[in-house]
Design a protein around this nucleic acid. Structure first.
Lengths: 189, 189
DNA sequence: TTCATTTGCCTACAAGCTTTAGGCAAATTA
DNA sequence: TAATTTGCCTAAAGCTTGTAGGCAAATGAA
């Protein structure tokens, strides 16, 4: 019996490619086995179950995103940094739709703690240093930025904008302008 | 053989309840059949297939949301209207998480055209009348509001905010303040 | 080299979900 | 009351998840 050389890591990476090709929802243990031309049961030595596989995909995507985000933000500040961070998320979603979808998977507390999630909010918070918000507002602003980035990308990818002019790049640029203006002019009650 | 009185409509309404109880992802033709104490195949006379069932759930949720949104926005303007609309979406998501998730389902063009989707963007646009934006910007603002509402609710429900103070109601209120301020002070390049 | 152990992939099987085909009986209509 | 329609059924095939147990290839020791 020829051995293919399966490892958890190879499975996860192949799963990520599969997700980008056919969608995160379509990533199944079966489909992954087919891709390696191997029987399904063989995968269960490397991955606990289907949920485990999906969680690993989510962690991979969050990690890749965090690396790219850190790189993009480094050496920038203010609107420059804001746009760079937003573009990382948006570009990643366009280039790796399946992985991006994986990153939205709801993680159990343990996985969430081990994820790059904290680094993501940390980077958003770092950007806000350039806007000088008082502390309680900083958290609100972090959440708002997260909401806009995630919401925009989610609607854009889901086709929510696709049936009306003008094109989405224009709106994206204006969204970044608007966020910058909002942060420079942050309302305090 | 006793007849239970299945109809497409009853199935969809029961499916909506099921979605709210166990999650939209867990709504299956099988689970629905169990709920009516009926064999699975019996449902296929009323619903084309699993995808058809989910699409109908999405349309139901979009319709319910549109009705509530129209009611909330009627007679209000400015920040009042903005907050009312946002609260409709957020409250609906909290009260009917499964239906809200259904409303996010990606619809094929035909279903999308038959959905209440257009009414939703129409209501957002109506609110913007109170802020007096020039036309190209209005569309950008509609998309931005959609992004914030959807993104915020999605992150809040997904637990994205749950591991940090302060509580989410506070952030939500400040988010509405921020959007109002942004629209009153809309940046034009 | 040879033998023992570990490891990787296999077969077999159970159970759940989806979907189609065809049938009988209840409800509806004439 | 008879004819027709409609509603729910049984049967069956195909796909996915997951578990248990087995054989052979790789690894490492004598």
């Amino acid at each position: 019996m020829a051995r293919v050389g399966l490892t958890t890591d190879r499975l996860v990476r192949a799963g990520a490619e599969l997700a980008d090709e056919v969608g995160f929802e379509q990533v199944t243990v079966s489909a992954l086995a087919r891709r390696f031309d191997v029987k399904v049961a063989s995968l269960y030595s490397h991955v606990k179950n289907s949920q485990d596989l999906k969680t690993r995909l989510a962690l991979l995507a969050l990690e890749e995103l965090a690396v790219q985000a850190a790189d993009a933000v480094a050496g920038r500040s203010g609107k420059d940094a804001l746009a760079a961070l937003g573009n990382v998320y948006r570009d990643y979603a366009h280039e790796h739709p399946g992985r991006y979808a994986a990153a939205q998977l709801r993680l159990d507390p343990e996985a969430a703690a081990a994820s790059a999630g904290r680094r993501h909010s940390g980077m958003t918070r770092a950007i806000l240093r350039g806007y000088d918000l008082p502390e309680p507002d900083q958290t609100h602003a972090v959440r708002l930025l997260g909401s806009v980035f995630h919401g925009y990308i989610s609607l854009e990818m889901g086709g929510g904008f696709s049936h009306s002019a003008p094109d989405t790049q224009e709106t994206w640029d204006r969204t970044l302008d608007a966020l910058d203006a909002l942060l420079r002019n942050w309302p305090t009650p």
